[in-house]
Simulated assay, not measured.
Amino acid sequence: MSTDTAGFYDDLAEHYHLIFEDWGRSIQRQAATLGPLLENKLAGGPLKILDCACGIGTQALGMAQRGHSVIATDLSKAAVRRAASEARKLGLEITFHVADMRNLSALPTSDFDAVLVGDNSLPHLLSDQDLSQALENISARLKPGGALLATIRDYDSLLATRPSFQGPTFYSENETRRIVHQVWDWDGNEYEVHLYLTWKSASLWASKHYASRYRALTRAELTQALESTGFAEIEWLMPETTTFYQPIVLAHKDHSTVEST
């Protein structure tokens, strides 16, 4: 993860919701899938959840609406400000911090029941060292037996085809029209995403371009990294069984894991 990643999300924060057909409904749909997965794995009352890549709040807001105690972090200051504003609008009590998932030591609390890393955030970590550092920090925030839930793109399939284009997707609501598309420039097992948002309000058109870099992280690579940092009971749930838009990985912190972060 580089400073460019923070800049990408700083720039995108104001318009991030435009990627979705209806961001509010997406919050509800994601919570309706991810919430029960954690609730069924971690029996008991409301969970203490850390969303360590919260963005503008897509997962954090939905989990809080389900009655869980949520603390949310992101490396983008602008995204955190936007997420905090959205939480206030909904009357939700969520504590927000600016933090890189590779260093969560500044958080005033730990012993989380679950850590959530949604929306393909882990593949921003371009090196094995960065990925391990993030997973070690996540493990240090979890109570023994706690769960990590992450969602990433299906890179096992994408590496076979290496698509250069995604979309365009057209949305229309009242007098507003939107076009969302992406261009992917591949470089080995990494790729740079160029995200384009174009929208019309009344008679005016506006267009924005954002760029960031990802690693095509396979399920085997992430599984190995999880095992190497003390996670166990690793389970992959695919879209055909969950109806979620990305593969989901669930892993538990081994009770015998020794804290080193």
Rank of each mutant, 00 (worst) to 15 (best):
E235I: 07
V180M: 12
L158H: 09
T169F: 14
T261F: 05
S69G: 07
E192W: 08
P163N: 10
R88G: 05
P108Q: 06
R66C: 10
I248Q: 01
S85N: 11
L122Q: 01
L126E: 00
T218S: 13
I19D: 07
M101L: 15
D111A: 13
D130S: 14
H194A: 06
V98I: 15
S69W: 11
D74I: 01
T3Y: 08
W199L: 10
S157L: 15
K208H: 12
L38P: 04
S69I: 10
L50F: 05
T109V: 14
K200G: 08
D185C: 04
E175D: 14
S26D: 14
R153M: 13
A79N: 06
W205M: 10
F244T: 00
Q246R: 15
S121A: 15
Y210L: 10
L12Y: 11
N137Y: 07
V70F: 04
L149A: 04
A147E: 08
R29S: 11
R66V: 03
R162V: 12
A220Q: 15
A202I: 09
A106C: 08
R66T: 01
A147I: 14
E173A: 10
P36Y: 10
D22R: 12
G230H: 07
R102V: 02
A83G: 10
C54T: 02
A150P: 03
L131V: 06
T242W: 09
I71N: 01
A84I: 03
G7D: 11
Q28Y: 05
D185Y: 14
R177L: 13
D130P: 04
I27M: 04
L250R: 04
Y196G: 00
I27C: 02
L135G: 00
P168R: 11
S212N: 14
S105F: 06
R177K: 13
L34T: 02
E21H: 08
A211M: 12
H209D: 12
A140N: 11
T58N: 12
Q65S: 08
G118I: 03
C52A: 15
V80P: 02
K253H: 06
A87I: 07
T242E: 08
Q28W: 08
L50A: 05
G62F: 04
L159N: 06
E240N: 11
I94T: 03
R178P: 03
G67W: 09
I27N: 00
S26N: 10
D119P: 00
A84E: 13
A99S: 12
